[in-house]
Structure formats: C-alpha cells, structure tokens
C-alpha cells in the first residue's frame, strides 16, 4: 500500500512477531510497519477484526500494538529503536508474567 519516496535509508532493525524488518532511525513504528506491508497491527477485542492505522496522529487508537512486551501502545506515536520487539496484538493486550492460562 505504501512505498518509500527515494531510498528508505533503513539502517536499523526491528522485529515484528520475530521477523526482522529494516527501519529508519526517527520513523514511527506505524510508518515502518506500513512500509513492510503488515496486513494488520491488531485485532479488536470485541469482534477480532483486523485494524491498520487510520488517523496516524494519535486520535483513533487503531494502531495499538505490543512494543517490547507492553501491549496497547500507539504505533503512530512511538519511534523505532534498533532491536525493538514488536508483536501484533490479537484482541486484548497480553500481560507478560502472569496469565491465568
């Protein structure tokens, strides 16, 4: 859906569900994952519908994703860091260290 204007200058790497994705220092996770053609960032907790970013400026909260073990973070407001581990969020956020199941 989106392609780089000029060269992507992706010199660092983040991981989406364990898969390495080249990233440009200073870009948001949302932009990085849109370039990587992620089919969705999360599914909704109500009907498990897939969502991608809608507004990109922090209003809609559709870009929620798990970042370094913390769920429900806004990908459009979070910048990439080298080695960052991002996970697609399926339904409600998981809490690392203490599920009942």
């Amino acid at each position: 859906m989106f392609t780089p204007i000029g060269s992507a200058e992706a010199t660092i790497t983040i991981f989406l569900d364990g898969r390495p994705i080249p990233a440009r220092a200073g870009e948001t996770i949302a932009a990085c994952l849109m370039r990587a053609a992620a089919p969705y960032f999360r599914t909704t907790p109500v009907t498990s519908s897939p969502r991608l970013p809608f507004c990109m400026i922090g209003h809609c909260f559709d870009c929620l994703i798990e970042i370094d073990g913390v769920g429900s973070r806004q990908a459009c407001l979070s910048q990439v860091c080298d080695g960052m581990r991002v996970r697609t969020q399926e339904g409600p956020a998981a809490i690392v260290g203490g599920q009942t199941q």
Binding site: P45, G71, S72, G91, P92, A93, A94, I95, G98, Q99, T100, Q101
Partner: peptide, 27 residues
C-alpha cells in the same frame, strides 16, 4: 484500564493498602 487478556480471576483487596482490584467481564 484498557482491556487485557485474562490475568486475574479473584477480586484482590488490600488490608491497609488502598487496593481493590478485579478484572471485569470485558477484560
């Protein structure tokens, strides 16, 4: 809070701490 996956079944309360904590049906 935001909805989270099943985390706690019992309701947890504090004795002297200002704590009362449960997970609602929606998470």
């Amino acid at each position: 809070t935001a909805r989270v996956k099943p985390f706690v079944t019992p309701v947890v309360i504090g004795i002297d701490q200002p704590l009362s904590f449960k997970q609602s049906v929606v998470g």
